[in-house]
Design a protein around this nucleic acid. Structure first.
Lengths: 335, 335
DNA sequence: CTGAAAGCGCTAACAG
DNA sequence: CTGTTAGCGCTTTCAG
């Protein structure tokens, strides 16, 4: 990499002259500017990012800590973050916590040494279960802002972007009730997560409200055979005529299992699930989905963090932004 | 963030003494070392990463350029890269090219200013179609090593990690032929990619070799309705009794479509597809899959790049590593 | 055993 | 209009 020094030497001017010329300073003569820029162009000079970061005490880099990149929703949020950050001139350093509290702490530690200007993160499952938040507070107190999305730690004062999980399942369940479904089940393999609990409550409220049935809930453990579980659950509860799936795979599996058990979807049984477009087509008929607008969430978090970074002096109050879900009607529901 | 300067001031010693003490230099007296370390601990001192990078002219950071993070295979490779890089003390900066040549070039440019020590990348679709490689060569000539994985540019001299795509479909097809399948179709929505072409050739070679049938290939465009396409293809070609799917969704969709058309899987029709474990269970019966060991690929690329970075003086020859696929027998094939 | 000084690449205040 | 200098935080050589 060419440096200012080398350009200066070759042009027989001082380093600062070169620097100013390249930064279009008014101080430098036209002719000099031309000569400098020409040579810089020729050598494909690019200011050294590390030197700039040191000088200006900011890296224009965001640390992103994601629990699981194989989760389609989280990957999509990451996609949104990357795109927005790039647009605004920032890079992202990605760490994967693997749902582990320890790794989450480590990642925070490892990057809180000048590597990044701030963090975007989704709280790890273990962290939510143990309800630990000290490491977040420490980081913030070191002057590194955090924006949390989806799974957030309520006790931490920081910007947040969340989904209206409660309303989403509440409304979806209402929708099935309007189809005159008599026995609606709730499937979930994310009962440990804050969002999982909210989704369950939304469902439960809807069914209880209309006084038609008790909640009927299948909780699936991470390590269980999900396909077998759902199949036998449907087999045992033959009168289930509606399903709300809280996670990204249960809905698809439920459709396939129901079809396999000889039921017509959506005539005999309606299914709504959280899923992306690309997963929805894995089911036949296609799963009617609750869409979380992951890319929007990603873009919002990035905007929020960058806004804060570029207005650190203002000390603005923390905000929580709710991104509304929407239902995409496909073929697994009547209306 | 506390700096050496502040520690030095508080301890009434020089900056270099503090630095040496913290780095366990033999030069410094026991007592001084103790005092310094104590205070550093108290203030939670961490050496500034940016300053270190500037000084040592290396960032311990890898630029990763991925075409599409929503592709499960690529996400999994990224996961493998991140884990291995972290283990070896490196961070990763992730850029998403979105299959665009322009974005790929930009990302390379943007990071080739001291931000990273080298690159890991999977060539964008547009780049493969246009067969452009100059930007890769430029980057390498600037002293930034590249390791390519999966989709590689053969004309670029750099380390590579690839999959035995040809053998994978060749062997899978052979497997179906052994089941005495008479009409095996090949489904693909990745015909533009180098790996897509290899997979097709592996399939074609196998069916032609045994002289039993002409290749029967369904190419699906990215924007087509994949589900409809596959369904009508199977409907039209009623005698299809075997399917090899080149991409990650066609296999799953084929099973569901076949079942829906009244066929028994695997009795009437066998299906093998490239897919991950988590996607395989979206089909009922479960898709027998060709597994690419994405995490291993990720780990290998990271190792390869870091090895090169830490042995830049050796000027070793470039290597190509092949990671063998394996077939995981599930329920959509007889054996 | 400890400290002063140089230098990594850059910007910017200040001097000329 | 151009150059000198200091300084961002750190390591390391060289002097003391």
């Amino acid at each position: 990499m060419v440096t200012l020094k080398q350009l200066a030497k070759e042009l027989n001017v001082s380093i600062s002259t070169v620097s100013k010329a390249l930064n279009n300073s008014e101080e430098i003569g036209e002719e000099t500017v031309r000569r400098v820029k020409e040579l810089a162009e020729l050598y494909n000079y690019k200011p050294n990012k590390v030197a700039l970061s040191l000088k200006q005490n900011k890296t224009k880099t965001i640390g992103v800590i994601i629990p699981n990149i194989l989760n389609h929703f989280l990957a999509k949020v990451l996609f949104g973050i990357e795109r927005e950050a790039t647009k605004l001139g920032y890079h992202i350093i990605t760490c994967i916590s693997n749902e582990s509290l320890e790794k989450e702490k480590e990642s925070l530690q490892l990057l809180a040494n000048g590597s990044v200007d701030g963090f975007i993160l989704c709280v790890a499952e273990e962290t939510q279960i143990k309800n630990e938040v000290e490491h977040f507070k420490t980081t913030i107190s070191q002057g590194l802002p955090i924006v949390m999305f989806d799974r957030v730690a309520h006790d931490v004062m920081c910007d947040k972007v969340i989904v209206d999980d409660f309303d989403a399942t509440y409304n979806a369940t209402k929708g099935l009730l309007k189809e005159d479904r008599k026995k609606i089940a709730f499937l979930s393999n994310i009962e440990d997560l804050s969002v999982g609990k909210l989704r369950e409550r939304g469902y439960a409220k809807a069914v209880l409200e209309e006084n038609r049935q008790e909640p009927l809930i299948l909780k699936i453990n991470k390590n269980d055979d999900q396909q077998k579980n759902i199949r036998s659950f449907l087999k045992k509860n033959k009168d289930i005529d509606g399903v709300i799936a809280a996670d990204s795979s249960s809905g698809i599996i439920a459709i396939n299992a129901a079809v396999n058990l000889g039921k017509k979807v959506p005539k005999d049984i309606s299914v709504i699930g959280f899923a992306s477009k690309s997963d929805a087509i894995h089911a036949f008929p296609r799963l009617t989905t609750i869409r979380q607008h992951a890319k929007v969430i990603g873009a919002e978090t990035a905007q929020m963090l960058i806004h804060r970074l570029e207005n650190m002096d203002l000390k603005e109050d923390v905000k929580t932004k709710i991104v509304k879900t929407s239902v995409v009607k496909n073929d697994s529901t009547l209306n």
